[in-house]
Simulated assay, not measured.
Amino acid sequence: MRLCAERATVSVPLDAFVAVLHRPSGATHLLTEPAPQILTALGDEAVTLDELLVRLAAGFDLGSRAREALSARVAELVDIGLIVPE
Rank of each mutant, 00 (worst) to 15 (best):
M1N: 03
R2P: 03
R2S: 13
R2L: 12
L3T: 09
A5Q: 12
A5T: 10
A5V: 12
A5Y: 07
E6W: 07
A8M: 02
V10Y: 10
V10T: 13
S11R: 14
V12E: 15
V12M: 09
P13A: 13
P13R: 14
L14F: 13
L14N: 06
L14D: 12
L14A: 14
D15I: 07
D15V: 07
A16Q: 12
A16C: 02
F17C: 08
F17G: 00
F17K: 04
A19V: 10
V20G: 05
L21N: 04
L21V: 11
H22L: 09
H22K: 04
H22I: 06
R23K: 14
P24C: 12
P24H: 05
P24N: 08
G26R: 04
G26F: 14
G26Q: 08
A27Q: 14
T28D: 00
T28Y: 09
H29I: 07
L30Q: 06
L31V: 08
L31W: 11
L31R: 06
L31Q: 06
E33Q: 06
E33Y: 15
P34S: 13
P34I: 05
A35I: 03
P36H: 13
P36Q: 12
Q37N: 09
Q37W: 11
Q37P: 00
I38F: 06
L39Y: 11
L39D: 04
T40S: 11
T40W: 12
A41C: 06
A41M: 10
L42N: 04
L42M: 15
G43H: 08
D44H: 15
V47C: 15
V47G: 04
T48P: 09
L49P: 05
D50Q: 09
D50A: 15
E51M: 06
L52R: 05
L53P: 00
V54D: 15
V54T: 14
V54C: 01
L56I: 10
A57V: 02
A57E: 14
A58R: 12
A58W: 00
G59C: 02
F60M: 12
F60K: 02
F60I: 00
D61Q: 11
L62K: 05
G63Q: 06
S64T: 15
A66H: 08
R67I: 02
R67A: 13
E68C: 01
A69G: 03
L70H: 03
S71H: 09
R73C: 05
V74D: 04
V74A: 08
A75V: 00
A75W: 01
L77M: 09
V78D: 03
V78F: 00
D79I: 00
D79F: 00
D79S: 13
I80C: 15
I80L: 15
G81I: 07
L82F: 08
L82D: 08
I83V: 15
I83A: 02
I83T: 01
I83E: 02
V84S: 07
E86Q: 12
